[in-house]
C-alpha cells in the first residue's frame, strides 16, 4: 500500500458529530458535541482526553456501537471514503465493521468470546468477510496469530481466551481485528490495562503491523507518553468537544489551548528527580456534562480565564489545515509564553 498524500481526500472524515445519551426522563446529554477530524490513510491519529471528554463515545459512534435505546448520533456525518456511515442500515454497517474498520478495546474479553477457541473466533471473522472455506480460514487464523507474535500459533489457536495471559489476549484481539486487513483500526486504550513491559511489546507490534499493512490507526488514550510515541497527529478533547488539534510536534512543543499545556505540565516525567519540582496541576475537576459552565467549558479551571470567556462558547478556530484551537485568548497567551521563556 502506498503512502497517501495530504492532498488526497481523507480516508475517514468526522464532521460535526454529536452523540447524545438519555440520562433521565426526556433529558439528553451530549457526550460528543460537534466533533470534527479527519484520518488519512496510513497515519496514526491520537484522540486524547480525560474521563468524560467524549473520546470513547466518539470511537463507539464511528463503529456504530452505541448502547441501543440510550445513545444515538443526533447530528453530523462520519464518512469513510466519502460514504456516510451514520445513514447506513445495521446490516450494511456490519459489513463495514471488520472489513473496513477494525476495533480493539482496553479489555480484550469485551471482544473475545469465552466459549470459543481463539482460532475459531478469528476464522469466523475471516469466513464472514473473505468467503473462505473453514479449513482455509483456520489456516489464516494461525497466520494472523503468528503475525501478532503469539508463540506456537498452531497450539494457541486451539486455546480459549482464559488460557491466555492479558498480553496474549490483547495480541489475539489485534489478530482478530486485523484479520480482514481493515483500512482503519480504532484502538480504544488498548494498552491501559497492561503492564509497561507488555505495553511496550504491543505498541511495537502495532507500529510494525501498520508499516506492513498500511492501515490508519485512531488511537484513543489518556496517556500522553503513548501519544508522543505513536501519533502523527493529535486531537485533544475536553467535555465532549475538540479543543485543539495539531501534529504531535505542535501539540507537545507549542500547545495553544491552556488545557493542553496544563495536561503537558501535570504529567510527572521520568529523569526529573534531581529537580524535585512540584507537579503543576490543573485545579478543580472535569465538569459533569449536565453541569457545564456557560461559555468556554474549561474556563472554571483555566488560569487565564477572563470575564469574556463566560460570554459565549468559543468556536474551534482553524489556523491552518489540521491545526485548530478552541480559545479566544490563544494569540495573547502564546505571546505570554514566548515572552516568559
Amino acid at each position: 500500500m502506498t503512502q497517501t498524500l495530504a492532498s488526497e481526500p481523507p480516508l475517514l472524515e468526522v464532521d460535526d458529530l454529536q452523540t447524545s445519551f438519555i440520562v433521565g426522563e426526556g433529558q439528553d446529554v451530549r457526550a460528543v458535541d460537534g466533533v470534527n477530524f479527519v484520518v488519512r490513510a496510513g497515519e496514526t491519529l491520537a484522540i486524547v482526553g480525560e474521563s468524560g471528554s467524549g473520546k470513547s463515545v466518539t470511537s463507539l459512534s464511528i463503529m456504530r456501537l452505541l448502547p441501543k435505546n440510550i445513545g444515538r448520533i443526533s447530528r453530523g456525518t462520519i464518512r469513510l471514503r466519502g460514504k456516510d456511515l451514520v445513514t447506513l442500515s445495521d446490516r450494511e454497517m456490519r459489513a463495514i465493521r471488520g472489513n473496513d474498520i477494525g476495533m480493539i478495546f482496553q479489555e480484550p474479553m469485551t471482544s473475545l468470546n469465552p466459549v470459543h477457541t481463539i482460532g475459531t473466533q478469528i476464522a469466523e471473522v475471516v469466513m464472514q468477510h473473505d468467503k473462505l472455506k473453514k479449513k482455509a480460514a483456520h489456516q489464516r487464523a494461525i497466520e494472523m496469530l503468528e503475525l501478532v507474535g503469539i508463540p506456537e500459533p498452531v497450539k494457541r489457536a486451539d486455546q480459549y481466551p482464559h488460557q491466555m495471559s492479558g498480553g496474549m489476549r490483547q495480541r489475539a484481539m489485534i489478530a482478530m481485528a486485523l484479520a480482514c486487513e481493515p483500512s482503519v483500526l480504532i484502538a480504544d486504550e488498548p494498552t491501559t490495562a497492561l503492564d509497561v513491559t507488555i505495553q511496550a511489546q504491543i505498541l511495537d507490534l502495532m507500529r510494525n503491523l501498520q508499516k506492513k499493512m498500511g492501515m490508519a490507526i485512531v488511537f484513543i488514550t489518556h496517556d500522553l507518553g503513548v501519544v508522543a510515541e505513536m501519533a502523527d497527529r493529535v486531537v485533544v478533547m475536553y467535555a465532549g468537544q475538540v479543543v485543539e488539534t495539531g501534529t504531535v510536534e505542535e501539540i507537545f512543543t507549542r500547545p495553544l489551548m491552556p488545557y493542553t499545556s496544563g495536561l503537558m505540565q501535570s504529567i510527572p516525567r521520568m529523569g526529573e528527580s534531581e529537580k524535585k519540582l512540584r507537579l503543576q496541576t490543573i485545579p478543580g475537576y472535569v465538569p459533569l456534562l449536565t453541569k457545564l459552565p456557560g461559555g468556554c467549558r474549561f474556563r472554571t479551571r483555566c488560569a487565564f480565564a477572563e470575564d469574556r470567556c463566560a460570554v459565549a462558547e468559543p468556536p474551534l478556530e482553524e489556523l491552518e489545515s489540521g491545526r485548530s484551537v478552541r480559545c479566544i485568548r490563544w494569540r495573547e497567551l502564546e505571546l505570554k509564553t514566548k515572552a516568559s521563556a
Binding site: 495471559s165 496474549m168 509497561v196 507488555i198 505495553q199 511496550a200 496517556d223 504531535v248 507537545f252 521520568m270
Partner: peptide
Amino acid sequence: KALLSAVPSPDIHAKRDRVILTGDI
C-alpha cells in the same frame, strides 16, 4: 533497565534504546 526503558516518554524528541522484553511474567 527494561522496566525503565519500557515507559513511553512524553518527550517527543527523546530517542532511547528500548529493551523490549519478550514473553510474559
